[in-house]
Design a binder for these strands. Structure first.
Length: 875
RNA sequence: GGGCGAUUGGCGCAGAGGGAGCGCGCUUCCUUGACACGGAAGAGGUCACUGGUUCGAUUCCAGUAUCGCCCACCA
């Protein structure tokens, strides 16, 4: 073992040939947490960088969308931490009102029970119990991913502090007249039995049937069209456009409503579109938002004909029928009476569905609580308009404006039990009292609290400041509010971001909840398809973490993350990411085996070989580029730059170039060991935010440092840039590649050594690298019996004559050269055409003209070289 | 119905007013003492279509087509 490569005297850790993530990840994460790296200190005088996590559903589990969202946040936080910021990434979970309640109700249903069987108190207890059972899952999954969150500050949207925040802001809004109670048509889910806000309703184009029904008889009859025939039972008018000549004579008269015997008025209302259908519309104020408005304008009664389950409640033959059965039955009854004018025909129109259970939403007249959004939304829009909050990518801001500028009042009451109960009490004599957080609710005979709870988004809208201690004036709030960045998918720009803006600005006296909103896309499969269970293309991040490692999973996601765009991923790409981690592992392994060192200053440039100066120069460029991409949330580019530097420059070239130097030993090898150590040290730091585990494992092994988590962030050193070295190594790479190409074309085995004579190296400035070129291209020194059988001509005037110990495939080489010649000729023609164009010379910028001249010169040299090589080929 | 975006090699995506790039896949060769989760060398695209601006357009503008997303109370 005398020829063992030099190793560090203090016996470096020996690494296995393959990186095994499992054990490393668990060990590292525990160490990070116990070392307190993630704990934020509000009393620090370092500048603050804070992010609040978009709280996932407390009883949910980590899906690949979370994994993306968390990876991005962790990247930002880890880098800032290394840059010396006091960083806080605050974790927590959301109580997710309807979603969680639905889950528990399903569990009950399995036992044949409903929530009403338990009663409110018991039911809520049961939900808390479910939270206790399942609430830990997602948190431990976040640990698996490597989230560097401050666990000491974990919050829940229904914990005591947040409940007080909810209570406080409700009271304040109420007192300011921004919360009110009113009877309105709201979106109602007949299955969840609760009101829904606009954003909880998803529209899809459904096929319905449009039927035309004749109301009244004789010349005074009028035909209306509807897709919801059953609602005619609740009609209290027919409306036509005021300017519609066809019906002018009927306005003010009454018609008989079929099946009911009621007579209803015909009114004129500008809302009616005379072009649509018959130009006459039935008016059902209790079951349609438009009709409700018309009803208000004309003082029409609202007749409720359907109960909360969508079952007909109006007395008569249809009572007790479900709304869809009733629709068929009503149409049938009308047909029997000869009231159906035009047969029903298919009609595709947008229908609202409950975003939770997909049940068709029923517009329903009911008494609900609303937030008056006008002034709040205005402020939320202005904060973005005047630049206090930046939306990334900026194109997304338009969607935001569309939303905040056209927001309806927000229905915040939900007929659920799981959530923050509305802090309003009703007295026996109709009193309504909103009770503040520090006030006692009224007691006494007949007083009772509102039964409803608040929309989940009400409490999540407070997240950026309620989690920091608001309404109290806490050190956390002072230090970390406004938060630095909010990272989330564009799909909840409206759901959540706009609402945080509204409440943040309101509660914090005009101070915005965050400086930047960084939006990412949805994770998709490798064909750009949405992930769906039915399609079977859903990725489980935990599965990937188990099989490929958390780093590989994170790298795959980050590598696909272009700002605002969807992120395609696939298992193969994750394998590729794992391979990359392994590549780093082995590069570091090589460095350790060869005594790379990180101690002391880097030697000055004069003491370094061109190869070392080249890689250091490249490193500075990479630091600068990666840094810029980090700043602009261009994570795909961050990964791209670092991946290629690591793989191409460091592994494929630098390590290979350095092997002969290290083998030689001496001071040059010492310097190279120092540079190799430095480059890997810096590279691992740069990669740490993206792939924290493997980088920490390698960095500590390489440097002996405590942890790369708390290492300083690399800063580009412009004085190490060396264009001459880059040009020189670039030339060397071209020479080597060209020889390898020749060898491959000629079918020479990669390992086979071929005697060769090199000329023109000095002129090309590569005189010092002959040995390297010979090593990399596997060319031996020409012996006494050297007989050139082939000549490879390389750009820059280098010529290499090879003794292939036999004839070469002349035809193949000729074909190759002809192809190259054609390319060179094309290039020459292109350049000449430009340079012969006076307009080009006149108008094009000087550097472009210079570039074309250079290209022409290079192409001409190439052509000469290729032509010579062709002539030298044996016939 | 309104708004936004996309259209670049087999697939997924970058890109910039002046020489078409990346990953995966594909072809050929190679177990060379960091790594086969590897190495070397390749093949493959008239950058959707039509006009316009420009010395020059794949890149800017307009229109067309196709696709996607968001918003929406026209029965």
């Amino acid at each position: 073992m005398t020829d063992t490569p030099q190793t560090r005297s203090d016996a470096p850790p020996t690494l296995p040939a393959q990186y095994q993530p499992g054990e490393v990840e668990q060990r590292r994460y525990e160490q990070w947490v116990s070392a307190g790296y993630f704990r934020a200190d509000a009393s620090s005088d370092k500048p603050a960088f804070s992010i609040v996590i978009p709280p996932p559903n407390v009883t949910g589990s980590l899906h690949v969308g979370h994994a993306l969202d968390h990876t991005i946040q962790d990247i930002l936080v880890r880098r800032k931490r290394m840059q010396g910021y006091e960083t806080l990434w605050l974790p927590g979970t959301d109580h997710a009102g309807i979603a969680t309640q639905n889950v528990v109700e399903r569990q009950l249903a399995a036992q044949g029970l409903s929530r009403h069987d338990l009663g409110r108190e018991k039911f809520v207890e049961r939900v808390w119990q479910w939270k206790a059972e399942s609430g830990g899952a997602i948190l431990s999954q976040m640990r698996r991913l490597g989230d560097s969150v401050d666990w000491s500050r974990e919050r829940f949207t229904m914990d005591e502090g947040l409940s007080r925040a909810v209570h406080t802001i409700f009271k304040r809004l109420y007192d300011d007249g921004l919360i009110y109670r009113a009877e309105r048509i709201i979106n109602w889910c007949p299955r969840c039995l609760t009101a829904l806000s606009d954003i909880e309703v998803e529209h899809s184009d459904d096929e319905g049937e449009l039927v035309s029904i004749r109301y009244g008889d004789g010349p005074n009859s009028i035909v209306v069209a509807t897709t919801r025939a059953e609602t005619m039972l609740g009609d209290t008018a027919v409306a036509v456009h005021p300017d519609d000549e066809r019906y002018r004579h009927l306005v003010g008269t009454e018609v008989e409503l079929p099946l009911t015997g009621r007579r209803i008025p015909i009114v004129a209302d500008a809302h009616v579109d005379p072009e649509f259908g018959t130009g006459a519309v039935k008016v059902t104020p209790a079951h349609d938002p438009n009709d409700f408005e018309i009803g208000q304008r004309h003082g029409l009664p609202s007749l409720v004909i359907m109960d909360e389950r969508g079952v007909i409640s109006a007395p008569g033959p249809f009572q007790g029928l479900d709304r869809f059965e009733a629709r068929r039955a009503v149409v049938e009854a009308l047909r029997k009476e000869g009231r159906i004018v035009a047969e029903k025909r298919p009609y595709v129109h947008a229908v609202g569905h409950c975003s939770r259970c997909n049940t068709t939403v029923e517009p329903r007249l009911s008494l609900q609580w609303f937030v008056k959004t006008g002034p709040l939304a205005k402020a939320a829009g202005d904060a973005v308009r005047d630049g206090r909050v930046r939306i990334e990518p900026p194109e997304m801001a338009k969607r935001y404006f569309d939303w905040v500028d056209n927001m309806h009042d927000w229905c915040i009451s939900r007929q659920l039990w799981w959530g923050h109960r509305i802090p309003v009490w009703y007295g026996p004599d109709g009193q309504v009292v909103c009770v503040g957080p520090d006030e006692e609710p009224p007691t006494g005979e007949g007083w009772h609290q509102d039964e409803d709870v608040l929309d989940t988004w009400f409490s999540s809208a407070l997240w950026p400041f309620s989690t920091l201690g608001w309404p109290d004036d806490t050190p956390d709030l002072a230090k970390f509010y406004p938060t630095s960045v909010l990272v989330t998918g564009y799909d909840i720009l409206f759901f959540w971001v706009a609402r945080m803006m509204m409440f943040g600005l309101y509660a914090m006296n005009g101070r915005q909840p965050f400086h930047v909103v960084a939006l990412h896309g949805m994770v998709r499969d490798q064909y750009g398809k949405k992930m769906s269970k039915s399609f079977g293309n859903v990725v489980d991040p935990l599965d990937w973490i188990n099989r490929f490692g958390a780093d590989a999973t994170r790298f795959t996601l980050a590598r696909g993350a272009n700002p605002g765009a969807d992120v395609p991923v696939s298992e193969e790409w994750c394998q590729g990411s794992r391979n990359f981690c392994n590549k780093l592992w082995n590069a570091t392994r090589f460095a350790l085996m060869n005594g790379a060192t990180v101690a002391g200053e880097l030697p000055p440039a004069e003491q370094l070989s061109t190869v070392d100066r080249w890689i250091l120069s490249r490193l500075q460029q990479v630091i600068a580029e990666a840094d810029e991409y980090f700043e602009t949330y261009e994570f795909a580019k961050v990964c791209d730059v670092l991946y290629h530097f690591a793989w191409d420059d460091v592994c494929d070239w630098y390590v290979e170039l350095v092997k002969p130097i290290l083998a030689e030993g001496g001071p040059r090898a010492d310097a190279t060991r120092r540079v190799l150590g430095h480059v890997l040290d810096q590279l691992l730091r740069l990669l740490h935010p993206v792939i924290p585990f493997v980088t920490d494992e390698l960095w500590t092994a390489l440097t002996g440092g405590e942890s790369v988590v708390i290492a300083s962030w690399p800063v580009a050193d412009a004085s190490r840039r060396d264009e001459a070295a880059e040009a020189e190594i670039g030339k060397l790479q071209r020479v080597v590649t060209e020889v390898r190409r020749f060898r491959a074309d000629q079918g020479l085995k990669p390992g086979q050594r071929v005697p060769a004579r090199l000329s023109g190296l000095a002129e090309a400035g590569l005189a010092a690298h002959e040995k390297l070129i010979r090593t990399l291209a596997r060319l031996d020194a020409p012996g006494d019996a050297f007989a050139a059988s082939a000549r490879v001509a390389v750009a820059g005037g280098v010529t290499i004559e090879l003794d292939t110990r036999g004839s070469i495939d002349v035809a193949a080489e000729r074909a190759r050269l002809m192809k190259d010649r054609a390319a060179a000729e094309r290039e020459i023609a292109q350049c000449r055409a430009k340079l012969d164009n006076p307009a080009f010379l006149d108008k094009a910028p000087a550097h472009v003209v210079d570039k074309v001249r250079t290209r022409l010169q290079v192409a001409e040299e190439d052509l000469a070289r290729i032509t010579a090589a062709l002539e030298a080929l044996p016939a």
